[in-house]
Design a protein around this nucleic acid. Structure first.
Lengths: 207, 207
DNA sequence: TGTACATCAGTGAACGCGCGTTCACTGATGTAC
DNA sequence: TGTACATCAGTGAACGCGCGTTCACTGATGTAC
């Protein structure tokens, strides 16, 4: 079938066929995500990612200035998927409080489904060097949470009580995610999903 | 003064003087902790740790089977200090709820004071390969939390409600710690310590 | 429609580096007699 | 009190490895004429 020497079955969606890959940038991001998920470590090797894509390491320097640059792109892609997951989780019938709980559940589920990516996204690395796009995504997600909390509590968005309740809810979902990821809840009598339900199912008004 | 060739000012507390270090095992743990704190990364180099202590890398193999072994020892030492900090935090006048809040504040403070150590302690690495001593320390800390929560709520220790409230409080402290460590709360209108007070100062009965 | 050429996206070889680990060895310690 | 010797805790040199990055290069693409 394929006459070209190396594209084979892996043919990227774009023009790539042989020498030119066509979509190397996103292919490298994809490969890096796969690598960290498989190794369950937030680190990966640039060479290995290139190898996966079937390209020389050096080719990656055509798209990323350094390994760190690729890592930032990986974190950004992670946040894109994450905020999509949160949005989907909140799209359910019910009032603001119920939608908040939905996105809380989605938060923990995302962390459990993509542990290494989640860790990379939130690692000091990301916070330090957020790309404009990355921080925009993060800010949007936080503002959604804040708005939902304001509606739930029947207060203005800029009310400090709303701020505190929002960070409190965020801490709860974030901490629960990390405790599960780090295997700290394995010894619990209740299963992890029971705990998630019991803890995040709790109405935020309880604050 | 010193006639020996290499001990100099760094003389360890034990017998060490020149050839024999005297307390190399704990000196290496100490050096590793210092290294991760300085680099703010949960990883470090065995060679660098040995260099710090003023000893050949190979000498470390007399005390640790591998680098991983040393990392486990570092995590164990971290948990030892951590549980001490929690205990101190809870030692304050007041009822069970107030003592719980005290240890919650100590939890977050420890994380802020020793970010890289905190991360290493809770990283998947530690959960996977907990030494007997390490898991014992962790279990003790959790049981203290659980007991305090039972007293606060006026229920039996094995009541599921107590379990849930305990994990909820743990998630709150853990999540808040990580959000601060990862720089996620930097953009908040309230300062981090105001948030800690507002969120952990909240009585656990609110559950 | 055909061709020259600038531009872009890859290749291939090499770099220096620091790492964890292993080996055979030596200097210090402490115990039995 | 003195000495022989087993044991312990270090040294020093070397290993192979995979890494990120740089260099000069070549093959493919697409646009101007």
């Amino acid at each position: 079938m394929s006459t070209s020497s190396r594209s084979g079955a892996r043919r990227p969606p774009s023009t790539g066929d042989g020498y030119h890959h066509g979509n190397l940038r996103s292919a490298l991001v994809e490969a890096a995500i796969a690598l960290i998920e498989e190794s369950d470590s937030a680190d990966f090797s640039l060479r290995e990612a290139a190898r996966r894509v079937g390209v020389t390491v050096n080719a990656s320097y055509r798209h990323f200035a350094s390994k760190e640059d690729l890592m930032t792109a990986v974190a950004a892609e992670g946040f894109r998927r994450f905020s999509l997951a949160l949005l989907k989780g909140s799209e359910q019938p019910g009032n603001a409080a119920e939608r908040l709980m939905g996105s809380g559940r989605a938060y923990v589920r995302f962390a459990c489904d993509h542990p290494a990516l989640f860790r990379l996204m939130f690692s000091k690395f990301s916070a330090g060097r957020q790309s404009a796009e990355l921080s925009e995504t993060a800010r949007l997600a936080y503002h959604t949470l804040r708005a939902g909390m304001a509606t739930t509590l029947g207060r203005e968005t800029d009310d400090p009580v709303v701020s505190i309740a929002a960070v409190r809810a965020w801490s709860l979902a974030h901490g629960l995610s990390y405790l599960i990821l780090d295997g700290q809840l394995a010894a619990q009598p209740l299963t992890e999903s029971e705990l998630v339900e019991a803890i995040l199912g709790q109405a935020p008004e309880a604050f």
